[in-house]
Design a protein around this nucleic acid. Structure first.
Length: 264
DNA sequence: ATGGTAGAAATTCTA
């Protein structure tokens, strides 16, 4: 496989964002895009818009919440929705669309949308930590099977420098020791952060709340990550957090994160 | 001025 450009992007509704996503794909020449928060059922996903510009798409969406997809122009096979052991949500044991895997260009691509813990004492926080623990178990298996990438919205800021104010987040979700330990455990299952070495902080963010002019004020969080096994990490030739896509009317609250990989 | 932003769907939930 030759050089490839891989990206992840929480689009916050694929239907409301499609007129940004399609031109962005064409402009940036991304070969594989992992998408999170499609917020749509299968029958409402705009498959044709991707197909008409040369991408195959796999999507996993159950309702108006969550939803993950992978678009690829370097092949897309062995699609798997959900990983083995993934917990169900709540008393109702509701399945949620938070993981999709496919093989693209010789790489095993995992698009993940980690649950939002909401706050430190919410039941969603226990669910989040459990979900990450089970992801870690799956990730350990994947790392032994071949070149693997796990990318998406992790809803965790692993380091203090990954938020605009630790004082603001001190008693909130995303920065707690539990969440950070759960993220670190996935990394320690055999993965590297492909972007941080090229774009160290502080003040490097991938998400800015829509409220309070957070983007304009530079008040963001780094919560979207591309992790990969060492064989993939050794191929990285460049990385970009595309802040331009956070600008203007109709932007997602997340920026796309992009890496370039050299020939295998 | 008791709000604030955005999206999906249904009069509220999620982030």
């Amino acid at each position: 496989m030759g050089a490839v450009r891989i990206a992840t992007w929480n689009v916050n509704s694929i239907r409301s964002r499609i007129e940004r996503v399609i031109p962005w794909l064409e402009r940036t020449e991304v070969d594989v895009l992992a998408i999170q928060e499609t917020k749509t059922r299968e029958d409402q996903f705009p498959f044709f818009r991707f197909e008409e510009i040369g991408y195959e798409v796999a999507h996993h969406g159950l309702n108006q919440w969550n939803g993950v997809a992978i678009a690829s122009r370097v092949g897309l096979s062995d699609v798997q929705a959900g990983f083995a052991g993934a917990p169900l949500w709540g008393e109702g044991e509701t399945p949620e669309a938070r993981h999709l895997a496919a093989t693209c260009g010789g790489l095993r691509i995992n698009s993940v949308y980690v649950p939002n813990g909401r706050n430190l004492v919410d039941p969603h926080m226990d669910y989040k930590v459990e979900w990450l623990a089970r992801l870690r178990d799956a990730a350990l298996t994947w790392a032994a099977q071949g070149p693997t990438m796990i990318m998406g919205d992790w809803n965790i800021a692993p380091q203090d420098e990954d938020v605009w104010s630790m004082e603001f987040y001190a008693d909130k979700s995303h920065v707690s020791p539990r969440e950070r330990a759960a993220f670190r455990a996935v990394v320690e299952a055999g993965y590297a952060d492909l972007v941080r070495p090229l774009h160290p902080g502080p003040k490097v963010y991938t998400y800015w709340d829509y409220q309070q002019l957070r983007f304009q004020k530079g008040r963001g969080m780094r919560i979207d990550f591309i992790l990969a096994t060492p064989d993939v990490a050794a191929r990285v030739t460049g990385a970009l957090i595309d802040r331009e896509e956070r600008k203007g009317k109709g932007a997602s609250d997340h920026a796309p994160v992009v890496v370039d990989l050299a020939d295998a």
